[in-house]
Amino acid sequence: MSAIFEVQNLKRAFGGLTVTNDVSLAMAAGDRVALIGPNGAGKTTFVNLVTGNLTPDSGDVLIGGESVTRTNAIGRVRRGLVRSFQVTRLFQEMTPAEHVALAVLQRDGRAGRMFGHFLTMPEVMAEVIELLGKLGLRELMHRRVSEIAYGQQRLLEIAVALALKPKVLLLDEPAAGVPQSDTGLIEKALADLPADLAVLMIEHDMDLVFRFAKRVIVLAAGTIIFDGSPSEVTKDPRVREAYLGSYANASHAA
């Protein structure tokens, strides 16, 4: 299968510090990949480079085989690269229905329409109801976001991303800040993501990573030190060292 999303030799330095150093990866439709790495590994910078909020010093980002390195963040979204945020960025005064409707309308190029109301647009509402229903937010669709629980806000974040019908979905710590009791909801939502969607998840919660990902990429000090199956990642000495320092592999000597 050809790559729907590709990063080639991406490099970015701030001053003298190289934060992303020669990172390459490729994903096919339907891939479930987790990107992990210790604090300061350069995950945030990588996300910003990929989404177009930062320009790389060198390297390429491709969506569907087409280079988007020179395309700005908005253009990349329109080509099917959508992200969710680590800290929810939702409109507190608006309802879940409005969020999803806005995303649907924007995707169809109708968000600039100056007449009508989405509640009276049957095709928009059908999609809103279907999507919110799938994520268990149907009952809350007309409540204000400020009134709904954080775990549900995280689900709405996913709903907004899905409403844009992405080809590649970048999930930035989808379970961050969600109380333990609600992580099940997030996990279920992740399991139900469209099968043909390529998903790259950045996550700290290892349980979630192991349950979700078919492939794990470990980033440390700006470079990929591991790219393989979840079952092998914990055995890899370099990964252990990156997370635990040199104690990890020397411990048996003590």
Partner: peptide, 21 residues
């Protein structure tokens, strides 16, 4: 209208609106 909704979104969080394309 959808445009009015878009503007209210911009008022609350322009970065979110950009992430919607």
């Amino acid at each position: 209208s959808p445009f009015g909704m878009l503007c209210r979104g911009i008022k609350e969080d322009p970065i979110r609106i950009r992430a919607m394309g």
